[in-house]
Simulated scan of single mutants.
Amino acid sequence: MSRAPLLVVASVVSIQFGSAVGRTLFDDLGATGVVLLRVAISALVLAVAVRPRLRAWPRPAWRAATMLGVAVAGLNLFSALAMRTVPLGVVVTISFLGPLTVALVQTRRLLDLTWALMAAAGVALLCWHPGPALPLGGLLLAALAGACGAGYIVLTARVGGLVPGAGGLPVSLTVAALVALPFGAGGASAIVERPALLIGASCVALLQTIFPYVLELNALRRIPTRVFGILVSLNPAAAAIAGLIVLDQHLGSVEIAALLLVTAASAGVTRNRPAEVQDRWSSRRLPRPPRDAADPSETQGRANQGCG
């Protein structure tokens, strides 16, 4: 039996537990400070590992990679800000709407309307019953992260068509770090007086970006993107579990119902995507293969999530 599905599940777990560990650093580094350090460390490590051939890049490739970096920064910054007041599982659930919308737009099947309504029902549950634990401001930030996640997917496809291999990833992460710099520099400066915090930030970078990249790169060589998308739809559930174990975040019945609805919709629209759409995306080698593809769960990312 192929171990590829286990690699994807391991990536999902790594990403969400990395997010939870990052949340524990908010008091010391600030939400945006954690994002800045994670993205900067990931960019440095992957630049050394990938070594993109920048001199051969055409101008459109630089433009697309820059725009992708802005989307990565937005996805991660909005997600982190949302996590200050909203449980991790809920943030990931809401932010899945962006990638899910991209997937739905690409298909024209009547069944997809069912998945869209299912996802909308899940979000409606959260918005109609925000309560003190789910402030609307935090939900809006998570929704903005989802919007950036949608742009992240579209732009990654663009970069993947212009840049061979994974060369676009470290460049986009570098741009994301520059965008996050004015927002996170103040919090990240705490590592000057407390260098040990850099160890925690490095662990977050490894768990949320670097390890998933390696795991998913190997998995996508062995399984179709459709199967990959279904497995990555486990992200909201994994986020809820990580939030419970690491952060002691207990979700109520309403939040759990919303999570299940959005997860089912993501898996459903991936499972039922027409073959021609699957083939179109599986033929591309994107900068960050898994979550940068068009499957509804392939983002959280990132980046995820986002990038992670």
Rank of each mutant, 00 (worst) to 15 (best):
A190I: 05
Q278H: 03
V102Y: 09
G122K: 11
P130V: 07
R291C: 01
V86I: 12
V9H: 04
A257Q: 10
V227E: 06
V171T: 08
T93Q: 11
L162F: 05
N218Y: 06
Q300W: 13
A31H: 06
P236F: 07
Q305T: 04
N304F: 10
H129A: 14
A275Q: 10
G137T: 04
V8E: 10
L134W: 02
A10V: 14
R51E: 06
G252E: 11
L207A: 14
L117W: 14
V92D: 00
L104P: 00
A176F: 07
P289F: 12
P52E: 05
F211I: 14
G186A: 14
L173P: 03
T85I: 06
V159D: 02
L139A: 15
L117H: 00
A180H: 09
F78T: 15
G165F: 04
L29E: 15
F26S: 12
M118S: 14
V171I: 03
Q305G: 07
G122E: 10
G146K: 04
P130T: 05
P52D: 09
L260H: 01
R273N: 13
T114S: 10
L81C: 08
P164D: 12
L217F: 03
G89Q: 06
A82P: 04
A145S: 11
A157C: 02
F96S: 13
L100S: 13
L7Q: 05
I245R: 07
D27K: 10
D27T: 13
V163Q: 01
S282D: 13
F211D: 01
L215R: 09
Q305V: 06
L155F: 12
V91R: 03
G161C: 11
G137C: 13
F96L: 15
V163L: 01
T263S: 13
N235W: 01
G131N: 06
V227P: 00
R226W: 10
G268S: 13
S19H: 03
S19V: 15
L54N: 01
P296G: 14
T24L: 08
S2G: 10
V102F: 09
G33P: 08
L37K: 11
R84M: 13
